[in-house]
Design a protein around this nucleic acid. Structure first.
Length: 254
DNA sequence: ATTAATGTTCAGAA
DNA sequence: TTTCTGAACATTAA
């Protein structure tokens, strides 16, 4: 991506932006000829309007006629920027590399995609081909809210458990969006105006290793590794079988 | 010096 | 065939 950045800037010159959309974790900028500029921020990338936070790590700058600036800033440089023609985008969209969006999927669809799998539910939720938009932090929060052990095999989950996963997904993601994301102590995540989010103050398990669970006030949050990612969970609220009473209340109050 | 980090992809092995 | 591991990408901070 970096070697072609100048070529990319040149190809973009003279085009109008007609829409900005989202597919899973990607930002999709629609241009007047229906081609798409797709930004995939990955770990540390952010899309910003306005000032450049630092001259370093700027990957792309869109300068608009009215003086506004949109830029992709990526400290670790793991993110990607891709410009696709309309037909290439259509092809890519239809290829199935990105599953249904996490905020739109319903229980039958999610179960159809994962219900036959022997994988543990936590790594399965991170599979963007199965369902798009859930990352490591929110997978932990979702399963905690749903009261499900992250190690549970997908093919052992009951319909009520799938229902709780879908409900918890919507609630966690919508709440995180309302609070404009989670900015942990390293300050990486920012909204488009470079302001920190507020949802980090409401995280129940993520990054809370060895703390007492705020919900049940009994369990101690555990950290385990699944598919080379940290998983945090409360062994009391999230049992393989059985369900802590407060879980039912939380989901039901939605 | 080592490790881990809100992510994904690849090769290779159970 | 499925699912996992380890490495890779690059940077920062504890």
């Amino acid at each position: 991506m970096r070697p072609n950045m100048e070529g990319l800037q040149k190809r973009l010159t003279g085009h109008d932006v007609v829409a900005v959309e989202r597919i899973g974790k990607r930002v999709v900028i629609v241009l007047s000829d229906q081609s798409r500029l797709i930004i995939e921020p990955r770990m540390s990338g952010i899309v910003l309007l306005g000032d450049v936070p630092s001259r370093e790590h700027v990957r792309l700058i869109l300068q608009f006629d009215d003086g506004q600036t949109m830029l992709f800033w990526d400290r670790r440089g793991l993110g990607t920027v891709t410009l696709m023609t309309a037909s290439k985008f259509q092809q890519w969209s239809d290829s199935g590399v990105i599953g249904p969006d996490a905020l739109l999927i319903d229980r039958p669809a999610l179960k159809a995609r994962l219900g036959g799998s022997r994988r543990a539910i936590k790594p399965a939720l991170l599979d963007q081909r199965a369902v798009a938009g859930i990352g490591n932090m929110y997978a932990a929060e979702i399963l905690h809210l749903a009261g499900i052990d992250p190690r549970t095999r997908c093919d052992r989950l009951s319909n009520p458990q799938w229902d709780r996963i879908v409900a918890a997904t919507r609630r966690v993601l919508n709440q995180a969006i309302d609070y404009e994301g989670s900015t942990l102590s390293d300050g990486t995540y920012r909204n488009a105006l470079n302001d920190p989010g507020g949802f980090q103050n409401y995280l129940q398990v993520y990054d809370r290793h060895s703390q007492t669970c705020a919900r049940c006030a009994e369990g101690t949050i555990r950290r385990i590794v699944q598919s080379q990612r940290s998983t945090f969970f409360c062994p009391v609220c999230q049992k393989r079988s059985g369900l802590h009473a407060s879980v039912v209340d939380l989901i039901a109050s939605d």
